[in-house]
């Protein structure tokens, strides 16, 4: 897992931007043991003792670089005008540098982690304030992290400001036990089908959505297929005398 020890900006070959203080903090999402799905005493692979932590990029510290500080400041101001404290609405800010050598390279991305109860006012502020003007949403995508207890289901919103030529990402988390999230259709009508898709595949319930029904799977389908705990349902295939198991039960490099 040599790659995982580099949070961001440390791609092979590229010069690393000096990370701002605190940016090297990592968030251990999961710890995996062994390889090929075996870790018990009957392991003959020799990989049984392997311990591999899965670490995601942690929160970045100021200055974020490029136009990011300006957008975060303006957002805090606009939220404060509406009676909402910035720290209540935004959990953390993550800047993914992706090996960039300059802070304003096109591959540097900004993510705001928003608490779910404040998602709609944050979207409203981002869309309407003249210094922010993220006037178009490019949809929602869900991600399931079964090991992040209490915040298993994530919804990621991709916003674009045509006026200012900027892009940012909002990430919102909800626990599996209470998979509710406010719908953003009132702010970005385009998210209608995207939220239906996320509901269909992850079981995230978007409160206030005008018609939250399945969109890709049949109406009577049981379960939400993109979740990590959903089995693929493949059957073993016989090939030249050997049996090939379904992909999710096959030996794999973890």
């Amino acid at each position: 897992m040599s790659g995982a020890s580099v949070p961001d900006g440390g791609g092979p070959g590229g010069e690393v931007v000096a990370p701002p203080a605190g940016a090297t903090q990592l968030e251990v999402v999961e710890v995996r043991k062994g390889m090929f799905g075996v870790g018990d005493s009957g392991d003959t692979s020799g990989y049984g003792g392997l311990v591999a932590p899965v670490v995601m990029p942690g929160p970045s510290a100021r200055p974020y670089g490029s136009w990011f500080d300006e957008v975060v400041d303006v957002l805090a101001e606009v939220l404060a005008e509406g009676g909402l404290a910035y720290d209540d609405a935004v959990e953390k800010v993550v800047v993914d540098r992706h090996g960039a050598t300059t802070p304003d390279a096109p591959q540097v991305e900004l993510t705001l982690y928003v608490r779910r109860e404040h998602l709609v006012p944050v979207c409203q502020a981002l869309r309407d304030d003249q210094d922010l003007r993220f006037e178009m949403s490019l949809g929602v995508s869900g991600v399931h992290y079964p090991h992040e207890t209490g915040r298993e289901l994530h919804a990621v919103y991709h916003l674009v400001s045509i006026t200012h030529g900027r892009r940012l990402r909002l990430e919102v988390a909800a626990p599996d036990a209470d998979p509710h999230m406010p719908s953003t259709v009132s702010v970005y009508p385009t998210n209608d089908w995207h939220e239906r898709e996320t509901y269909d595949f992850f079981g995230l319930i978007f409160d206030g959505h005008p018609a939250l029904t399945r969109i890709e799977m049949p109406d009577d389908w049981v379960g939400h297929p993109q979740r990590k705990d959903y089995p693929l349902g493949g059957i073993p295939v016989e090939y030249k005398g050997a049996t090939v198991p379904p992909p999710d039960t096959r030996r794999s490099y973890s």
């Binding site: 897992m1 040599s2 790659g3 995982a4 580099v6 949070p7 961001d8 440390g10 791609g11 999402v29 999961e30 591999a52 899965v54 670490v55 995601m56 990029p57 993914d96 992706h98 591959q107 991305e109 993510t111 490019l138 949809g139 995508s141 991600v143 990621v156 991709h158 892009r167 990402r169 794999s252 490099y253 973890s254």
Partner: peptide
Amino acid sequence: RVPAGQAWQTVEHPRGELGVHVVSDGGTR
């Protein structure tokens, strides 16, 4: 192996803006 994290990339597709959101956990898939 791809370092853990997420990325979003869009390109101009003949039909509009095509976006790709990929998340890696540091593994090979």
